[in-house]
Design a protein around this nucleic acid. Structure first.
Length: 416
DNA sequence: TGGCCTTTGAAGCTT
DNA sequence: AAGCTTCAAAGGCCA
């Protein structure tokens, strides 16, 4: 089974994807201006230009590896600019920009990285944090320009955008190092207080907060962790706890031997869900959504007497059956982690526009950076399948009864 | 209020 | 096997 760097790569085609975007990512990593918000935005800009012009300038292999350009390519750009124009109706100077699709490229504020008081501007801070989202991996810094300020330098400032995680999202799953995708997990004898890489004891960290991104208490948990349910964060659940508490978080959880070994081998003991199925933090699996929440209104409003026994049982059956969401793929995990930063940086809030940016950035990620998310996604799927062995993606197909494109008969042939 | 938009990837189904 | 479809997240927008 092919694995990424023999480190558990996504055997479901992740390697292909990584190869596909390797050149692009490497190329854009070296784009001028790295280390500044403008540079990163220029990445997007240049990549945009490349997208339309690079068919000749790019290497042939790159062209061959790339998926064919989507025919709706122009439309997303229009949508992005439209979204920005809606938010900045007075930003007339953006009109006529050759990169109208990415108006944030020209946000003047990005030019000034420092506020009068010497602090980094919010945009710059946001950008820098975005540039080193994984810096708690000791080796990651080495991949970046050592001259550029690291987030640690920002630690004395109150970040506008908190790093979403006080522990790196991949930390529980992936070993971070130069060979961070090797299947080798940190030796169990190493105390959590010992840096497994350097062997140097870490300074005591209250609640294991990221040493690089100081988080205000109020900020903790505001941004959901891609694997928040896996990362209880020492009593700081990333998923808010409803006032009424939780239902059984793992209705389908049966911790078998393989599951147990998987989890215990990957997570520190405090992360291992207890075998009785309750997560230590009481955090429900985010994949589980109460069927009552989004689906048809609860039948509890109806008098049981008014319902036939069969219909009631059916409805109860539906209500009992939780909606188990699909595990997030690599890109979804990436989006979840990066969305807040992009939103803060470009001031856009519309997800459609944000997703376009994230899509571009996803392609500009280096192979290694993408691999982290593929690996994380693979673990998600693996764990998901362990938690819900009988679950199938088809379970979620058209559950609401809506029939997208039914008028065109798109789904009419689908029988289930 | 619910669906659309927009992205990528996984999975399921059809041909 | 290839191609198509749906669904994951997210939040503003619109009918």
């Amino acid at each position: 089974m092919p694995q990424l760097n023999s480190g558990g790569g996504d055997e479901l085609g992740a390697n292909d994807e990584l190869i596909r975007f390797k050149d692009e990512g490497e190329q854009e990593e070296k784009s001028p201006g790295e280390g500044s918000a403008e540079g990163d935005l220029a990445d997007v800009k240049s990549s945009l230009v490349n997208e339309s012009e690079n068919h000749s300038s790019d290497s042939d292999s790159e062209v061959e590896r790339r998926p064919p350009p989507r025919e709706s390519f122009e439309k997303p750009r229009d949508y992005l600019s439209e979204a920005f124009r809606r938010q900045h109706p007075d930003a007339a100077f953006f009109k006529g920009s050759p990169y109208a699709g990415y108006p944030f490229l020209m946000i003047p504020d990005l030019g000034g990285h420092y506020l009068p008081n010497g602090a980094l501007s919010p945009s710059a801070r946001t950008y820098l944090q975005m540039k080193w989202p994984l810096l708690d991996a000791p080796s990651t810094a080495g991949l970046k320009d050592a001259r550029s300020p690291s987030p640690a330098h920002l630690s004395n400032k109150v970040p506008v955008v908190q790093h979403p995680h006080h522990m790196h999202p991949l930390t529980p799953l992936i070993t971070y190092s130069n060979d961070r995708f090797s299947p080798v997990t940190p030796p169990g004898h190493l105390s959590p207080e010992i840096d497994p890489k350097t062997g140097i004891p870490r300074p005591p960290h209250p609640s294991e907060l990221s040493p690089y991104y100081p988080l205000s208490p109020g900020a903790v948990g505001q941004i959901p962790h891609p694997l928040g349910w896996l990362v209880p964060q020492q009593g700081q659940p990333m998923y808010s706890i409803p006032p009424g508490g939780f239902r059984h978080p793992y209705p389908a959880l049966a911790m078998n031997a393989s599951m147990s070994s998987l989890v215990s081998s990957r997570f520190s003991p405090h992360m291992v869900p207890p075998h009785h199925g309750l997560h230590t933090s009481g955090i429900p699996h985010p994949a589980i959504v109460s069927p009552v929440v989004k689906q048809e209104p609860s039948s509890g409003n109806l008098s049981p007497n008014l319902n036939s026994k069969s219909s009631m049982s059916v409805k109860k059956e539906e209500e009992k059956k939780p909606h188990i969401k699909k595990p997030l793929n690599a890109f979804m995990l990436y989006m979840k982690e990066m969305r807040a930063k992009v939103v803060a940086e470009c001031t856009l809030k519309e997800s459609a526009a944000i997703n376009q940016i994230l899509g571009r950035r996803w392609h500009s990620l280096s192979r290694e950076e993408q691999a982290k998310y593929y690996e994380l996604a693979r673990k998600e799927r693996q764990l998901h399948s362990q938690l819900y062995p009988t679950w199938s993606a088809r379970d979620n197909y058209d559950r609401s009864g809506r029939n997208k494109g039914s008028c065109t008969g798109q789904k009419d042939h689908v029988k289930w």
